[in-house]
Structures are given as C-alpha cells and as structure tokens.
C-alpha cells in the first residue's frame, strides 16, 4: 500500500515536470520562430495582430477556466448546490458580449493609433493624464489580485499532486510562468493557452462522464442531493 502511494507520487511528479517542461519548451520555440515582418513590440505584445479563431477560443477557455473554476468553484458548488452552477453559467455571456461590443471597434481604433496596450489606447482616446494614471493604477491593482489568486491556486495544486512543500510548489509555478511569458511574449502565451485550453476541455469532458458513471447516472445523483438538502437542487442558495 505504502509502496503504491510512493509510486503514484513519483508518477505524478514526473507527469507534472514533463508537462511543465513541454509547455515551457513550446513557449520558447514559438518565441524564436516568430517572423520579423511586424515590429518587435507588436509581435511581442500582440502576436503581430493576427491569431486564428481556434487560438482565440482556447485562450478564452484557458482564461475563464482558471484556478477558481477547478479549485474554488467545485468547493462552493459542493456547499451551495445547483444555485452556484446557475450563477457561474452567466459567465457564458461575458465572452461573446465583450467581443461583439468592443472587439471590432478596438481593433479598428487600436490599429489607427498604433496602440499596443490598453493604456496606450485610452491615452490616445482621451488625451488626459488622469485617465492614463487611473487606468494604469487599476490595471496593476486588479491584475495583481487576480494573478495572486491564480498563483496560490497553481501552487496549491502542485503541492497536492506532488507532495512538495507549498513554497517550493509556488516557486516552480512562478518561475515557469514568468520565464515563458517574458521570453515568449503574447504569441507564446496564446499558444500555451491553446494547448492548456484543449487539455482543460478534454479533461473536463472525461471528468464529467466518469463522475456520472461513478454516481450511477444523473437521476441517482440528483436524488442524493435532494435527500441531503432539498435546497441543493433549487436555484436559491442553500
């Protein structure tokens, strides 16, 4: 029994490091392979302003399907029931809504201003120091908090899979991400995002099917929830 646990732990460590290594190498290769047609800045931050639909879809999957969907979300759903699932479904709208309203307009104007970042764009649009200051400030504050949550999630995940201490797990995660983002730029991020997005999508489907099978079908699962607490299957939080 103990032996089995050790082997499992070794296997998962191996899997983790191989996959982190692979993602890392792919990110680096992509950064080398990018063409020099557009300027370095445009290539680095925007992937030369041209990426396909599949890459966009998978980037959005990987962005929305973050640590909260896989680590925090299931825990809340376990406590609150289907009401939580109902709330998370509203996220579906945010993707197409923002893209339909802002996507094309941003593309036209950003191209005209030759804007690279959100702040470039706002600066050209409003010609105001305060807008630049406030937007930079809020981007730093909010991105920082959002990223901190992702890093903690990533660190905890590596910790629980490999049995490393939380701090070394966090360190591995942070170093890997920082390195390939720094060297690879936007194109590397979108490519590794597409790979990770595909893995999440396939993994989620496998997980869903195996959970339904191990629960003996959907009806018994719902009946279980109902007998546990009827509010678990209502849209109102229990």
């Amino acid at each position: 029994m103990r032996r089995r646990v050790i082997i499992d732990e070794c296997n998962s460590k191996l899997t983790l490091f191989i996959s982190v290594g692979l993602i890392f190498i792919i990110g680096l290769l992509v950064s080398k392979a990018s063409d020099n047609k557009s300027s370095f800045i445009e290539e680095y931050y925007l992937g030369g302003r041209q990426l396909g639909g599949f890459v966009l879809a998978m980037t959005m999957t990987a962005t929305y399907g973050s640590a909260s969907s896989f680590i925090g979300g299931p825990g809340v759903a376990y406590n609150e029931g289907l009401g939580w699932v109902l709330l998370s479904v509203t996220q579906v709208a945010t993707g197409y809504f923002t893209l339909m309203i802002l996507g094309k307009r941003f593309a036209i104007i950003a191209k005209k201003y030759k804007a690279i970042t959100m702040v470039d764009f706002l600066k050209e649009r409003y010609q105001s120091k305060w807008v630049v200051f406030l937007s930079s400030f809020s981007i730093i504050i909010f991105l920082f908090s959002a990223m901190a949550a992702q890093w903690i999630g990533g660190g905890r995940l590596i910790e629980s899979i490999t049995g490393l201490s939380y701090h070394s797990a966090l360190l591995i995660f942070v170093i890997t991400v920082s390195l390939y983002v720094t060297f690879g730029g936007f194109r590397a991020v979108t490519l590794t995002d597409s790979i990770q997005g595909s893995i999440m999508l396939i993994g989620t489907i496998i997980l869903l099917v195996s959970i339904i099978i191990s629960g003996g079908g959907i009806s018994p699962i719902m009946a279980d929830l109902q007998s546990e607490n009827p509010n678990l299957i209502t849209p109102i939080w229990s």
Binding site: L82, L86, V89, M222, T234, P235
Partner: peptide
C-alpha cells in the same frame, strides 16, 4: 417546492432549460 419538481434527463427542469 423542490418536492414538486419535474426532472428532464435526470436534471431538475429549471436547471435543464436554464443552464
């Protein structure tokens, strides 16, 4: 009332249609 719920494919009807 959850006791009165209809179920479609095993899911409560509201969940099935809405989500």
């Amino acid at each position: 009332d959850p006791a009165e719920y209809q179920f479609i494919l095993g899911f409560p009807a509201w969940f099935f249609y809405s989500c």
